[in-house]
């Protein structure tokens, strides 16, 4: 009761600041109108310098023939219009085909990694939602892969995936899942895809776990009490309370996971190095190789712009979908 009587008193305080506002009409612009702009100015400067301007240069690069013959003298590089794009999108040509297959590999990779990383994160967050002995230990343990520097984590997996000396084949052999005399390869051939997915999930899922765990703390405990009094089983509770309660987290989390995974460069770069197997040819890595190893930066830029357009399209559709759903709800 005390609380409710105090609350109305807060509102007049807000009104009390009106005297400041009363002076406003005297000037054309409200006093301190520039303040928000000054506050965002540093962010804008850095964003322009590091993200926006290089991006525009990159887009311009995609329209010129920036091969080894011109990289030392850009002004001489001929303008080719959409020429680079035509090569990239001609799926009958070798480059177009390679791009398409890399794109499809990346799509499969993204769906699996985002789906499983989210699933693992959700399972762990729910399992650790209620207090029990040892909860803190698990929570701490699960966050470690997020803090381990990417290079260290991925190179360790590379070591584990070695065909004849690696621990993975040794475990699989001990479980009689593989023929120990003819162990499978994980870093070449089609299995490279599996290896890449496993590694990417390992370093990504703790982030999903972290966000979901944080989200769970905002859900009111009473809801669960009420539901279990009504006899709802844990799964029902999860579907009816947890999932809706995490709606806002999930909206952002899934988008961020998608963008990070689709643009993943480090995993194949560190796992495979120079000779990447086609099954491990993620699109960022593919573009990097085309640009830097074969010295064709114009073509590389065109492929990057296509990638950007795709990501923008997917994000836009996603956001429209999310907004509609939240409006309906």
């Amino acid at each position: 009761m005390v609380l409710t009587t105090e609350k109305p008193e807060v509102a007049p305080v807000g009104v009390a600041s009106a005297p400041g506002a009363v002076k406003l009409p005297k000037k054309k612009r409200p006093k301190g109108w520039w303040l928000p702009f000054a506050l965002i100015a540093p962010a804008i400067v850095f964003e322009l310098l590091i993200h926006v301007i290089p991006m525009i240069v990159g887009i311009w690069m995609s329209f010129i023939k920036l091969t080894q013959f011109y990289i030392a003298n850009w002004s001489a590089a001929p303008f080719v219009g959409f020429g680079n794009y035509q090569i990239a999108l001609n799926f009958n040509g070798a480059q177009g085909q390679a791009l398409l297959s890399s794109f499809l590999v990346t799509c499969g990779f993204t769906i699996l990694v985002v789906g499983l990383a989210w699933g693992f994160g959700m399972a762990a967050a729910v399992a650790l939602q209620k207090a029990f002995r040892g909860r803190a230990i698990f929570r701490t343990m699960f966050l470690i892969p997020y803090a381990v520097p990417m290079y260290a984590g991925i190179i360790t997996w590379k070591f584990m995936f070695q065909q004849n000396t690696g621990v993975i084949n040794q475990i699989l052999g001990a479980l009689h899942l593989i023929d120990p005399n003819n162990p499978p390869f994980w870093l070449i051939g089609n299995n490279a895809f599996v290896a890449m997915v496993v590694v990417a999930i390992w370093k990504l899922w703790p982030f999903a776990f972290l966000m979901l765990m944080a989200g769970l703390q905002t859900i009111n405990e009473d809801l669960y009490e009420a539901a279990s009094l009504d006899g709802a089983k844990p799964f029902r509770q999860w579907r009816n309370i947890t999932l809706p309660g995490l709606g806002a987290v999930n909206n952002v989390l899934l988008l961020v996971l998608f963008l990070w995974t689709f643009n993943d460069f480090n995993t194949p770069f560190i796992l495979f190095g120079g000779g990447e197997p086609p099954a491990g040819d993620l699109i960022s890595f593919h573009i990097y190789n085309t640009s830097f190893i074969t010295l064709n930066f114009g073509f590389g830029a065109a492929m990057s712009v296509l990638l950007l357009l795709f990501l923008m399209l997917v994000s836009a559709i996603y956001l429209v979908f999310i907004n509609r759903r939240s409006r309906r709800a």
């Binding site: 964003e47 290089p54 643009n263 990057s304 712009v305 990638l307 950007l308």
Partner: peptide
């Protein structure tokens, strides 16, 4: 939206 920018595109620029 800068989160969407592929690193490979603006590395060289």
């Amino acid at each position: 939206s800068t989160q969407m920018f592929p690193g490979v595109l603006f590395l060289l620029p």
